[in-house]
Write a protein that binds this DNA or RNA. Structure first.
Lengths: 337, 337
DNA sequence: CTGAAAGCGCTAACAA
DNA sequence: TTGTTAGCGCTTTCAG
C-alpha cells in the first residue's frame, strides 16, 4: 500500500502538503494540488485509518447500539439502522454496530477511541447504559427517553402526542368507545417508555374528548392477538375504534376481526402506530400514525454530529406524529346520523 | 486517557512488558503480571485502537456489507447480522456495517485498512463487488454464490438440496401435483442465485419422483400473493402441495387459501422455506425448511477468521437443509387410500 | 503558499 | 523473564 510519503515523493512535494490537499485545511496552489491529485490517483493511495486516528484523534466512525434480538420490531430497527448508516455517510462517517446487550462494548469502543460518537437505540426507563455513556468522552444521542437524561441528548417520536392524535382522530369521526391493543407485556415490564408515553397521551385526550379507552396488552403471536381481540370484544362490546400499537400483532388482529365477521373500516375503525410500509402491507391499507424510523435515525446522526465539534448543550427532540387516513378508519357510529 | 506508558510507569515496568501482558505473546512472571494488571485497573487503561492498528496492522474489526433496503427479507437479514456480530465478538472483533449499495465503501474500508476482513451478504450472480473484493488484501467471504467465485470463499444454505427435499417430502406424502410460490419477479431478474438453485433442485427431484411442478413468481404484497394463489388454482386446479419460498408473501398466501375455503394441512399441504420463527408465527405452524440465517452468519465469520492468519485455500460451504414437519403438511390424496 | 519535524500510542524486533 | 528502540502513517505546529 502506498503511503503519504510515496505520494509526496511522486508529486515532488512534502507529506504535509499532501495531507493538506486531502483535508483542505490550508490553501494549496492549483498546480500543486493537481500534481498531488495525480499522484494519489496513480498510486491508488488511501490514507491509513489507524494512523489518521492516532494523529488526529478522529476515527470517522460512530458506534450504533441496536437491539439485534429477534422480535416484533425488526422492520423498525432495520429502517432505523438504515437511516443512521446513510446519514453517517453524509458526514463521512462509518458505523460500528454493537448489540444492545454488549454493555462492555460501550467501554471498549469508547475507551479505545474506536469511535467519535455514539447512537443508542431502544433506551429503557432505567437503562444501565445511560450512566456509562454519560461518562464517555464521546458525545452520544439516545433514541428513546430514559428516566433521567442528565445532560444527554435524546430523539424519539412524540408518542404522547401520537396517543392524543389517535384518540382525537377517532373522536372526531364519531367514536366514543375506543381501545388500545398495545405492546406485549414483557415490553411494558421493561419500561420502554414509549408505551407508557403513548398511553398517557391516549388517556389525556380521551378525557378531553369524552371517550372511554380500554387498554389491552397483546402478545405478538397469532394466538396472542386473537386473544386480545376476543377479550376486548367480550369486555367492551361497544368498542368501535381500535388503536394498534404492535406491528407484529397487527396482521393477526386484522385476521381475527375478519374471522369474527367484523369489517375493518366500516364496523370497526382501526388506527395503527407503525411504519408506513407496514401500514400499507396489510390486507386493508391502514390509517396510521407513522413511526418514521429512518427519519429518527437520520436525526440522531445529525444531533450527534452537531455535538462533535462545538459543545452544544444537550437537547431532546420529539418528532411530531403525523396521521394518515386510509381505508381502515371511516366516520364512526355517531357520525352516521 | 491513560497511555501504555502511564501504565508502565505506575507498574514500574517497560511499555513493552505492558504490551506483552495484554497480548500474551510472551511469558510474564506472576508478580510482574499482577502489578501491571493492577496498574491497568487503577488507571482504567484502554489501548488506543488506532495506535494498535497502526503498529500491528490489525484492527480487530470486520466489515459486514448488508442489504439495508427495506423489503421482504428483513427478519432474515437481522438474524444473519446477529449471527455475524455475536460470532465476531467471540474472536474479539467488532463489526463495521456497510450498506450493500455503498460499493465505494469496499474500497474505503479495505484500502484504508479499517478492517481485517469482509463478509458480504446477498451476492448476486454477476455481482460487481466480487472483483473488487477479490482484489482486496483482506480475506472475504460471500454469502450466496456468484457466477464465478474465483478464489473466494462462499457460504449459503444448499438451496438446491432444499428444493429436492421439499419435493421429496411432498411426494412421499402422496402429492403428485405441486407448485412453487417463489420470489418476486425483481429478485429473479437480479439473478440472486438462491432462487434459481432452489428451482433446479425442485425440478430435478420432481422428475425423479414423478410429480409435476408449476412455478409461480410472487410479489410479496397481499394482492400479489392473492393473485399468485388465484392464478395457480385456476391453471393447475389439481395442485395439492405448495412450496412457498417468499417470507413476505407467506402470511398472505395462507390468508388467501383460507378465504377460498381451502384448509391448509388437509386440503392443501404447504411447505415454507423460511426461518423457523417465521414458520411458527403463521396462523398454522408451518412445515418448513429452515433458513438458518444466524448460523450462516456465524459460519461466515468462522470462515473469514480462519483465513485471517494462515492462507487457507478458498472453499464454498453449503449448509444442508433440514425439513421440520408441522401442521401445514399432512399425507396427501394418494396416501389417503 | 510550502516544508521540516515532532509527536500520536502502540507493537515487535533486537538485546540482554 | 524483561527492557530498549525503531518504526507504523498520518496530522499539525512551527518556520520560512
Amino acid at each position: 500500500m502506498a503511503t503519504i510519503d510515496d505520494v509526496a515523493k511522486t508529486a515532488g512535494v512534502s507529506a504535509s502538503t499532501v495531507s493538506y490537499v486531502l483535508s483542505g485545511k490550508r490553501p494549496i496552489s492549483g498546480p500543486t494540488r493537481a500534481r498531488v491529485e495525480r499522484a494519489i490517483e496513480k498510486l491508488g493511495y488511501r490514507p491509513h485509518a489507524g494512523a489518521r486516528a492516532l494523529a488526529s484523534a478522529r476515527t470517522n466512525v460512530i458506534a450504533l447500539m441496536a437491539p439485534l434480538r429477534v422480535g416484533v420490531n425488526v422492520p423498525v430497527i432495520m429502517q432505523f439502522v438504515t437511516g443512521v448508516v446513510t446519514r453517517a455517510r453524509d458526514f463521512e462517517h462509518d458505523v460500528l454496530l454493537l448489540t444492545q446487550d454488549d454493555v462492555s462494548g460501550l467501554d471498549r469502543v469508547t475507551g479505545g477511541s474506536m469511535v467519535d460518537a455514539l447512537v443508542m437505540m431502544d433506551i429503557e426507563a432505567d437503562d444501565p447504559r445511560v450512566p456509562l455513556v454519560a461518562a464517555a468522552k464521546q458525545p452520544a444521542v439516545l433514541v428513546g427517553l430514559p428516566e433521567d437524561p442528565e445532560g444527554l441528548s435524546c430523539v424519539d417520536l412524540d408518542f404522547e402526542a401520537a396517543g392524543r392524535l389517535a384518540v382525537r382522530h377517532l373522536a372526531a369521526t364519531g367514536h366514543t368507545d375506543v381501545a388500545l391493543i398495545g405492546s406485549p407485556p414483557e415490553v411494558l415490564r421493561r419500561h420502554t417508555s414509549y408505551a407508557e408515553r403513548l398511553m398517557r397521551g391516549l388517556r389525556s385526550q380521551a378525557q378531553a374528548s369524552d371517550v372511554t379507552v380500554r387498554v389491552e396488552a397483546c402478545d405478538s403471536s397469532p394466538s396472542g392477538a386473537s386473544q386480545a381481540v376476543d377479550t376486548l370484544l367480550a369486555t367492551a362490546p361497544d368498542t368501535t375504534g381500535i388503536i394498534v400499537h404492535n406491528e407484529g400483532a397487527l396482521p393477526h388482529v386484522l385476521s381475527r376481526l375478519a374471522e369474527r365477521g367484523i369489517a375493518v373500516g366500516t364496523d370497526m375503525a382501526v388506527v395503527a402506530v407503525c411504519p408506513k410500509d407496514v401500514a400499507l402491507a396489510q390486507r386493508i391499507p391502514m390509517t396510521s400514525i407513522d413511526l418514521p424510523a429512518e427519519d429518527i435515525g437520520r436525526v440522531a446522526v445529525d444531533m450527534v454530529m452537531t455535538r462533535l465539534d462545538g459543545d452544544q448543550p444537550s437537547e431532546t427532540r420529539l418528532l411530531a406524529p403525523v396521521l394518515t387516513e386510509r381505508e381502515s378508519s371511516t366516520p364512526g357510529p355517531a357520525a352516521d346520523g
